[in-house]
Design a protein around this nucleic acid. Structure first.
Lengths: 220, 220
DNA sequence: AGTAGTGTGTGCCTTATATCACAATCGGGA
DNA sequence: TCCCGATTGTGATATAAGGCACACACTACT
């Protein structure tokens, strides 16, 4: 759909493997169930058991993992803790990441106060808005700054991720600013089909679009 | 990934066509840009122009539309208003839909007060929670009811869509209740890989998972 | 040490999705 | 009325993703 690289190479010690995007998108799901399994004290798991939990075929799980190495043992399965650590390293989740929010309206504030980011290593370290009456105030202990400060803040605070929560009409220009400031990943909550150059990853969160495709299947 | 029908048939006057899921998921995007074009007074549009706006190839747009009929005219393109109306009808967006929210914590309240649903025809008509101290109170003019009332409410209020905003541990059982109550579409905000039978559509909204797959591509 | 049982990793095949490319068609102007 | 430029709709082809099935590896038990 949107332009962007479909795949990347993963340098796996010996040779470089081409990893499809869809595979990378599944890895966080593996991390999540493996983390839960580890927490409940289970130390080995088979691809079949993982498949049951994730509602996918064991073959797909094995193939996905095989892009990155050989983590399992025949007859035994995968060591839960070892595998989750390896996957976290692959995904870059063995460290924390700084993010900023652009747009501190109702939605931006809800995102800023969402308690699910921090435990996973995503820290929101800056907030921006275009509204002069908001700039300078504090929201959730975050000082709201002018959008024109983005570039400087991205450098100073080592911000890698931008979260866009502005109205649709402003979204593309905000995204351009973020890209221009050197950000490489964007989580876009604005209801637009946004454009970013190939080297910048962008993902959209749009509940209305999700609902609108589901109604197709509703009978009554 | 999750089990579920990959495709459905669309009865298009003469013959039944198999419509892939991915195609249906793109239709709302077409509706959105077409609506914007209509609002700006443009009355004809070509697949190439649509492709520019959506960052996809004209061929894909034409093929997607061709699953449902022949809406364009050679040499001219598509009539914007006629096409958007047709697509809305196909998607079931020519009417309004009732939805309920389960889980009236921080997230559930943010969803309930999100102003983006109503203009698109999605009405939140009921709210449920397990917390006795919340039941009976009003949130955003919505009375919070017990989860055990779901079945009755779904029937009485003609609710077609369930929005799940409960903690991860409670999500699957809530989804089972919704399915049991006869709901056919679920928008799940809980961070779990939820299961629903094939006849129930389920979509997940999970910003953390989205971030976690993007970090794979971050260099530094 | 030998053997039975289990589950991985992967080549090969199937299915799904995207793109190409061109005949068919439309509207406007000479 | 006929021709020309534009753009659709779609068969054919190319690419991508998923799943099967089995050789191989590992453990445990005798």
């Amino acid at each position: 759909m949107a332009t962007g690289s479909i795949q990347t190479t993963y340098s796996n010690g010996s040779d470089d493997v081409v990893v499809p995007d869809v595979v990378v998108e599944r890895l966080p799901l593996y991390v999540r169930v493996l983390t839960a399994l580890a927490a409940s004290g289970i130390d080995m798991v088979s691809s079949e058991q993982l498949g049951d939990q994730l509602h996918m075929t064991p073959a797909q799980i094995r193939k996905d993992l095989s892009y990155f190495g050989r983590f399992g043992k025949q007859g035994r399965g995968y060591n839960v803790v070892a595998l989750v650590n390896k996957l976290k390293t692959i995904l870059g989740l063995d460290r924390s990441w700084n993010a900023c929010i652009v747009g501190m309206g109702r939605l931006g504030r809800a995102i800023a106060s969402y308690p699910g980011f921090a435990p996973e290593g995503f820290k929101i370290v800056a907030a921006f808005d275009a509204d002069q009456s908001l700039i300078g105030t504090n929201v959730d202990n975050l000082p709201v700054r002018s959008i024109s400060d983005i570039r400087q803040a991205v450098e100073e605070d080592d911000i890698a991720i931008g979260i866009v929560a502005v109205p649709a009409v402003a979204a593309q220009s905000v995204i351009d600013s973020l890209v221009d400031a050197g950000i490489e990943a964007i989580l876009n909550y604005a209801p637009v089909t946004a454009y970013a150059p190939d080297h910048v990853k962008i993902k959209n969160i749009d509940p209305v679009i999700s609902l609108q495709s589901m109604t197709y299947y509703l009978k009554s």
